[in-house]
Simulated assay, not measured.
Amino acid sequence: MKLGVFTVLFSEKSFEQMLDDVAAAGLDAVELGTGGYPGNAHCDPDVLLEDEGKLKAFKKAVEDRGLMIGSLSCHGNPLTPDTAFAKESRELFQKTVKLAEKLEVPVINCFSGTPGDHEGAKYPNWPVAPWPNEYREVMEWQWKEKIIPYWKEAGQFAKDHQVKVALELHGGFSVHTPATLLRLREEVGEVIGANLDPSHLWWQGIDPVAAIKILGRENAIHHFHAKDTYIDPEQVNMHGLTDMQSYANLQDRSWIFRTVGYGHSMQEWTNMISALRQFGYDYVVSIEHEDAMMSIEEGFQKAVENLKPIIIREQPAEAWWV
């Protein structure tokens, strides 16, 4: 395995300074945002796709520091009823796929998107209860008319360019659980897999180790985000796990994002890393820092310090004891 970081947290730094700092921290890989929600501070597809010289210099800058580009990320909502943002998200997806192919990056990360509840909808609709029955009817309409048709086309586009699509299992989007990921994968093919982020599984009540086993058996984990979540039992009793308060409301929320090891024990993180190895994932563990209780540098450094000792880097030895 390799240890990397989603560099959106260093967006205020220049590309070269960011790479220097990542290399100095002893990491192996960078995950670069190409637009959408993460922005494109370090990786603008329009620039790199149009200028072969800049593309080569870009790649060389990474490689000269002993780093690799583990993934490109273009999180948006290609299914939203907001036609302008949907168009932007779809075009960004295609540009990111093309750029990944040119950079020889095997995977891109994004969201599945969330449609509206009918053709004339104004906003996305994320139904999460089977009753009253109209909620389930909305969900089935979304899958049949929007989700599956779009991703069949987008998945084929990615496959044609030798790039895998890692969908982040994130609440608020149609693909947010192992079951919804596998449903889409069955329709679209193995080009679709998970960007498995345990922080979003914990607050949904999903055990990340169990999710790794479920998806790993299907070879359906394409990427992994290292981010933690602290769940406050007292506030869960007040607000439930679908807490709609601002992430900035740290004292009253039922859960908040934390850096690695500050929401769950390092034993749980060790169990996840071991499960990844056990079920076939041997790629980048990419740190995502969204801990509102720590500075960028402190949150990043603590994640690095906690993950370095538990990453399994080497291939296992033959079972000589058998």
Score class of each variant (00 low, 15 high):
A226Q: 01
V188W: 00
D20F: 04
K122V: 07
D82T: 00
L181G: 00
S265V: 00
R136D: 14
Y283G: 10
T259H: 06
P208F: 05
V191K: 00
F85S: 14
G39D: 14
E119T: 06
I214T: 07
L55F: 01
Q267P: 08
I192W: 02
H161G: 12
G172R: 15
T229Q: 04
M18A: 04
K56C: 04
W320G: 05
D117F: 12
M244C: 13
R253C: 02
D197F: 03
G36D: 05
G66S: 14
Q235H: 12
P178C: 01
L92E: 00
I287H: 10
F279H: 14
I256C: 07
W151M: 08
F93R: 04
D252V: 01
S199P: 13
C43D: 09
L307N: 08
K302F: 11
L169K: 13
P130T: 13
N306A: 10
V47P: 06
A194C: 07
K13R: 15
E101W: 05
D228H: 02
G193P: 12
G216K: 03
K87N: 10
A24E: 08
E187C: 07
D243G: 09
D64I: 13
G263D: 04
D232A: 08
F58V: 12
T177Q: 01
D228G: 01
L201K: 03
L72F: 10
E186L: 06
T259W: 07
S73F: 13
H42S: 09
D46F: 11
A121K: 08
W143N: 11
Q245T: 00
V285R: 09
K54M: 13
E190Q: 14
R258M: 05
A61T: 10
K87C: 04
I192Y: 03
A121I: 14
L99C: 01
S286L: 10
K59T: 10
A158S: 15
R183W: 01
H176D: 15
C43T: 13
L307V: 07
V236W: 03
K152Q: 15
G116S: 04
L276E: 11
G4R: 02
K56F: 10
R258P: 01
D291N: 04
L276T: 04
N109T: 10
L167M: 08
Y281V: 03
P124T: 14
V62I: 15
T177N: 03
E88V: 04
V284M: 02
P208T: 07
I273P: 00
E290H: 11
W143K: 15
Y230S: 12
E134M: 15
I256S: 01
Q245K: 02
W203E: 06
H264A: 05
V209R: 01
F257P: 05
A129C: 02
P316R: 01
E268L: 02
L167N: 09
I296L: 14
D252H: 11
Q278K: 15
F300I: 05
M244I: 06
D51V: 03
I273M: 03
P127M: 12
N77A: 12
K2G: 08
E145T: 08
E190L: 02
G76L: 03
W151Y: 09
K60Y: 08
